[in-house]
Computed example of a mutant assay.
Amino acid sequence: MSDGRDGLPPGIDAFDYLGTMVLVVDEVGRCRFANAAFEEVVGASRRSVQGVSLYDWFVDRPTMRDVVAGVMQKAYATSRVHAELKRHPHVTAGDPLPVQVIVTHLNHGDLILVELVEVEQQTRQEREERVLDQAQANKELIRNLAHEIKNPLGGIRGAAQLLEMDLESPSLTEYTQVIIHEADRLQLLVDRLLAPHRRPHVVSDVNIHEVCERVRSLILAEFPKGIRVQRDYDTSLPDFRGDREQLIQTVLNIAHNAAQALVDRMASGDALLIFRTRVARRVTINRQLHRLALVLHIEDNGPGIPESIRDRIFYPLVSGRDGGSGLGLTLAQTFVQQHQGTIECESEPGRTVFRILLPLL
């Protein structure tokens, strides 16, 4: 009995392990194979896809037909084109998905390999790589700078203490006290910069909703009036292995920043903070494909992050608030990356969303 894969290359099932969508079509454009990623994205089973014309899945049918024909006739070995992929109506209202299409002739009969890469996914992966590189550079810079500061700082403080012992005038000791206090303040700042890299990673079973509830209670205790903390949880999310205290600190740092930005709205009684959890399937995080991932959105209806620092909010010592240390989001990013996850932010006036993505499987 045939399973519909007669004439296909051996080992074709390996395409199911890819995070990108893959189709194999014949010389007239009929789909002979669709991998699991394609099923997931378009919202259709591979059984329903087999035998259907490839061109029916695209908004611009003629362009796709010309590209496949060119590769089939060996006018070129590989062709790339941007296109819009149709999806089942139950998937995000059926809106077409912008993709980059890579068409290649297979050395196996008259078959064509069609790879579809989501433009948004490709952009996100490139952004993740930049963030990882920048975070690593920041980490090395902080470590080196902190150690360079600590040694002379101790000497300055010690010299001020010795000088104070020899001073007879109380008015002059005020100046040495200023030196000592400022040296202590800088020492505390250096310790906070180094803390994320010194603290051990304590792993246990973590429930993300328990983390959110803990943060929610802390926010409402500090800001009891004028703010509503809304929960939108996917209760099917499983527990996962992680450092509970680090994750609480991560969510608290983001939520606390949001609450502080909502002070004006609190006065008018319409401040809103939302914790939203979802599950994502077949997600690429930090260049690795994961079958299952947790998505946590922390959203507020505040004024938004100033555009001048929007691209630098995860850098150390960058703050959009007077008196802010600029370490909260840096710490949050460090803890998320220690969980092999990513953190992103989108902001505009009236809506700011931090998106934390953590692998589950």
Rank of each mutant, 00 (worst) to 15 (best):
P98F: 11
D264G: 05
V206K: 01
Y55N: 05
T235N: 13
Q161G: 01
S45C: 06
L357R: 14
G304E: 15
G350Q: 03
A159Q: 11
I156A: 13
T235I: 10
V24P: 04
H339S: 09
A14L: 14
E344S: 15
V101A: 14
F314G: 04
V202R: 06
P170V: 07
R185E: 13
T78R: 15
A332I: 12
E39H: 04
P62N: 14
V295E: 13
S325V: 08
M1Y: 09
G4C: 03
E164K: 15
I227C: 08
P98K: 10
R291G: 04
M1V: 09
S308E: 12
K139D: 04
Q122K: 11
V28H: 10
A36I: 07
L111N: 02
K86G: 03
L262C: 04
I343V: 00
R198D: 04
K74F: 09
A14T: 11
L145N: 02
G11Q: 04
H290L: 04
N253I: 12
P152H: 04
D205Q: 12
D6Q: 10
A93Q: 15
S169Y: 07
P359C: 06
I309K: 14
Q230K: 13
R231H: 08
R65N: 11
E164F: 09
M21P: 00
I180N: 11
R281I: 08
L357K: 14
G341S: 08
M266P: 06
F33M: 06
V283W: 00
G11K: 03
T176S: 09
E120G: 03
T352N: 11
T352G: 11
G70I: 00
P316A: 08
L292Q: 10
A34F: 11
V67A: 13
I227S: 06
A14V: 10
E148W: 12
L294C: 05
R65V: 14
R310W: 02
R5F: 13
G323M: 05
Q125R: 00
H256P: 09
D95T: 02
Q337C: 03
G29W: 06
V117K: 10
V206E: 00
I313C: 02
G155W: 15
V101R: 12
V68R: 03
Q100T: 13
L247C: 06
